[in-house]
């Protein structure tokens, strides 16, 4: 009896920090946001409950389009991060020698030591009209006058891919590392070409990593603020910017909260659709083993 009680107590104690973290930092604020979003302002310090804030959002095309655009660009960033990250992850997990593996992995982590802000300014220093790249191109005579490379969608996408690619690489490396080389050899031995082995063996095997990486990358991108705002400038039209405007600039907490809830719902919907379309489920991929 003593043993079981002690066991239960230690389980509760172990679980406590996690429960507190989830409860205080995620569930509670989210409930608060949800509550605020359902509050309509009818007068000074007078509120009613209703869906007016949501109706406002739907009737305003700018908001709608910004949300769609954010989702679309985030999907693009996720796809690019997957395409660029897969070879890197494959190299680290399967081709690199065991000794250099740790070093390579660490090199992927280095950008994390620098804050988001500094990294974004790094890009600005490189890409602006008077920046390093433009000046260098002019001085070697490839272009006749400086060009502005900031404040385009392209720049925002590149900057975002650079920021989130690590979160694609890490889960990919860990799934690919579990793959027995004999599977690949069996794939060739039974007559598969390189492409067949890649498509029918490597990709399905890496699927849990691909799904996990894509979800993390997509959520991080859709919820990011600094990179799109700094690299995209005024025309970045990122949805988080709208939320910021409502909360801080306009001091319209009700609309801001509504946007926050909508962002969460919409990104969850996209993830769900993505899983559905690729025939994956959270249980069989992320939670596998």
């Amino acid at each position: 009896m003593m043993g079981r009680d002690a066991g239960r107590l230690s389980l509760i104690l172990l679980f406590m920090p996690f429960a507190l973290w989830i409860g205080l930092l995620i569930v509670l604020p989210q409930l608060g946001i949800g509550y605020v979003s359902l509050r309509e302002k009818v007068g000074i310090n007078q509120y009613e409950f209703g869906f007016k804030n949501y109706a406002d959002f739907i009737s305003e095309p700018i908001y709608r389009n910004t949300l769609l655009r954010t989702a679309w660009m985030s999907i693009l960033v996720t796809a690019l991060a997957l395409i660029a990250g897969f070879p890197v992850a494959y190299y680290i997990a399967k081709i690199a020698k065991t000794r250099s593996r740790a070093a390579l992995f660490l090199m992927c982590l280095i950008p994390l030591w620098v804050s988001d802000l500094v990294r974004a300014y790094g890009w600005i220093v490189l890409l602006r009209e008077t920046g390093v790249i433009s000046t260098a191109l002019v001085s070697i005579g490839l272009i006749s006058q400086p060009i502005e490379m900031l404040y385009t969608d392209m720049t925002v996408i590149i900057g975002l891919v650079y920021t989130v690619i690590l979160f694609m690489i890490v889960p990919l490396v860990s799934t690919l590392q579990g793959m027995d080389d004999a599977l690949l050899e069996a794939g060739y031995n039974l007559g598969g070409s390189r492409f067949t082995v890649f498509r029918r063996i490597i990709v399905p095997y890496a699927m849990p990593g691909i799904v996990a990486g894509s979800i993390i990358t997509f959520m991080l991108t859709a919820g990011s603020y600094l990179t799109p705002v700094l690299l995209g400038g005024k025309n970045s039209s990122w949805f988080t910017e709208q939320i910021y405007n409502q909360f801080i600039t306009r001091y319209n907490w009700e609309a801001g909260a509504t946007f926050g809830v909508l962002l969460l719902l919409f990104t969850s919907l996209v993830v769900w659709l993505g899983l559905l379309l690729t025939g994956q489920s959270l249980a069989t991929t992320v939670a596998k083993d």
């Binding site: 599977l183 050899e185 069996a186 031995n189 007559g191 063996i201 095997y205």
Partner: peptide, 19 residues
């Protein structure tokens, strides 16, 4: 290897787990 008509049963079989 993928053009040789010798097939191999691997030491740990290497059956494809996702199929």
């Amino acid at each position: 290897p993928n053009k040789r008509n010798v097939k191999m049963v691997f030491q740990h079989l290497a059956l494809f787990p996702m199929m």
